[in-house]
């Protein structure tokens, strides 16, 4: 009963890297929308990659910590405050008992991750703590957090008298380059587009619409045409799959995507570009760029190498701190 939700957010859930191995039963993998930020928050406090975090979207929940804790936020910047004092993202924060965490302003990004040193005490479902809201399982009772919910954290022997922000910061610039393109690999049904739509796919600017959630992001200003209207049989899809809806609009499937889909799969967003796409704001403009599978794989592997370097650095720093503390 260490953390109390004193105000509910729009839809805040526990997420780890996701639940794989059950998609043949129609059980979608769930997991963090932005895996990079989810892991970074964990690394900062010295946790392992797959420790569950709270994934916030704006407006986010307010939390009261009944016990001292070492926490970190990563991903979106929602103007987090502890007892009214602003705290940064991508840094370790030590908070005393009775601290109140409030997110004040939707500054940047879409999903923010809170990791707590030692991790939260949750019941796994099929090997993962990720919340599956469809099956109403995993995370906190299989649902988003509500006012009055109490969460336990792994016991830590901490004496923290006052708020302290530790003086190192994880450099995340590698994961969000400034270019306005989202790279993807070609989808099996790309060839079903008319010649003009095929060239439009990479040329035209598009935007993230308000119709976005953990299942998918609907994209605007991109009306593409198919050569024929024949219906397809449901086939497997992936996180990042871009489907063409009968309306001519594109939808990009996200962490809570269904396990199979029957719309043409035009392209698939690179694993290494998910973070950037997920964290985009509504109405933000971008364009798609097709790259080879080999390039896609290498970019992702480079990103993973960078992440593991950050992990080593973060773990070293926090362990040095807790030893001297």
């Amino acid at each position: 009963m260490d953390i109390e939700i004193i105000k509910a957010g729009a839809s805040d859930t526990f997420q780890d890297q996701g639940r794989f191995g059950f998609q043949h039963l129609g059980i979608n993998p769930s997991g963090a929308m932005d895996l990079v930020s989810m892991k970074l928050a964990n690394f900062l406090v010295g946790n392992d990659d797959n420790e569950a975090t709270i994934e916030f979207c704006f407006p986010a929940s307010s939390l009261r910590f009944h016990t001292p804790a070492i926490i970190a936020l990563s991903g979106a910047d929602f103007g987090a405050t502890i007892d009214g004092i602003e705290i940064p993202i991508n840094q370790v924060v030590c908070i005393p008992a009775q601290s109140i965490l409030v997110f004040k302003k939707n500054k940047q990004g879409a999903y923010c991750y809170l990791a707590c040193r030692g991790g939260f005490k949750l019941q796994d479902w099929l090997g993962s703590a990720s919340t599956n809201t469809k099956a109403i399982a995993g995370g906190y009772n299989g649902r988003s957090l509500r006012k009055g919910d109490f969460i336990s954290i792994a016991k830590q022997d901490l004496r923290i008298e006052k708020l302290v922000v530790l003086n190192w910061r994880a450099n995340v610039s590698d994961f969000y380059n400034n270019s306005q393109t989202i790279q993807c690999t070609i989808g099996n049904e790309f060839g079903e587009l008319t010649k003009k739509s095929q060239s439009d796919f990479q040329r035209r600017k598009l935007k993230i619409t308000h119709q976005r959630d953990r299942m998918g992001y609907l994209l605007s200003a991109h009306s593409l045409q198919r050569k024929s209207k024949n219906e397809l049989l449901s086939t497997g899809v992936n996180f990042g799959t871009i489907q063409l809806l009968p309306s001519g609009q594109l939808i990009c499937l996200m962490a809570d995507h269904q396990t199979t889909g029957g719309y043409p799969r035009v392209a698939h967003v690179l694993s290494s570009c998910r973070t950037k796409l997920v964290q985009m704001k509504v109405n933000q403009e971008f364009s798609f760029e097709l790259v080879s599978l080999k390039d896609a794989e290498q970019t992702f592997i480079r990103q993973e190498v960078n992440l593991s370097k950050l992990k080593i650095a973060c773990h070293y720093a926090i362990n040095q701190f807790t030893i001297s503390y």
Partner: peptide, 18 residues
């Protein structure tokens, strides 16, 4: 291999790149 997902006429495999 993370997942082996059958559908009407196909099987999709999701794998871990790393």
């Amino acid at each position: 291999w993370l997942d082996i997902i059958p559908a009407y006429t196909s099987i999709t495999i999701i794998y871990k790149l790393t």
